[in-house]
Amino acid sequence: MADNSYIYADARIHVHESTMLNAAFMEQLLSAPDEAACLKLLQEHGWGAPGMAAEAMLEGETAKTWELIAELVPDLSVFDVFRYESDYHNLKAAVKEACTAGKHPGIYLHDGTVEPEKLEESLTARDFDALPEEMREPARHALDTLLQTRDGQLCDCIVDRAALTAIRSAGERSGSELLALYGEITAAVGDLKIAVRALATGKERDFMELSLAPCATLDAGRLADAATDSMESLAAYLSSTRYAGAAEELKKSSTALECWCDNYMIEQIRPQLHNVFGLDPLAAYILGRRMEIRSVRIILTGKRNEMADAEIRGRVRMTYV
């Protein structure tokens, strides 16, 4: 049965999809001689305003996406799953702020679901009940760990695991097939990146157990076993999962793996280009725009730092349209 709740919104989003950057435009950006030429091309496409700095332009595009979605969806909390990343980043920052003397301005992101000031107050006062339910235990655990061990990395692992778990649960709860898939892939890819980093730095299995979030498409136990063994074991395990494509990228570099993870997400959301019912096309548009902005940021940064075109091209993500 078709979901009739978002017919108007889906139709508007499908019109907006036709203004998204496609692979040909990305090639044009890559062929541009420098950052200024890229910015000019983007301005001609409707991004930012003349003379606008790169970062302001990218922030403006992110804001434009959310303004459009806010206009179309009466209750934005259905997309909280996309904002948890910022929440848990802020939680990490607040835990560290609570354990160190003085204030550190500019450490918080302001696009989460919880006000950073509220997070900071709760952690300073150790009032964990004031936090959202899913954040209480990780916040307490991370704060205690940092106070007792002064191990910032361990504290980050606790919060990162909680973030992946929260994103996956929120996706499942949303009732949207795409958001559930997003939650699952985010958790799995997060685990995969943790495993690769742990292998590279020679971490123990205990550390892996503490860091890996549960997910349905990867077996945390087997992943931890493989990651404590060797890169070949990790690649062999991944080859037996739906993330087999990542096994090849593992051998290249961590950048190639990051790129593969984002491209995998894009491949999974692309069918929504032809879906005209429900919340999923809207969620896919948000993700598509996020990837598009990420790719433009990579190109602009590459051009600014005079990186070779081939090197930049290798990092640019697949486009949604």
């Binding site: 108007y8 919104a9 889906d10 139709a11 019109v15």
Partner: peptide, 14 residues
């Protein structure tokens, strides 16, 4: 009615 919602969405943009 349903098709009208989609049509309105398209006309809003174009």
């Amino acid at each position: 009615g349903k098709a009208g919602q989609a049509a309105s969405g398209v006309v809003t943009e174009d």
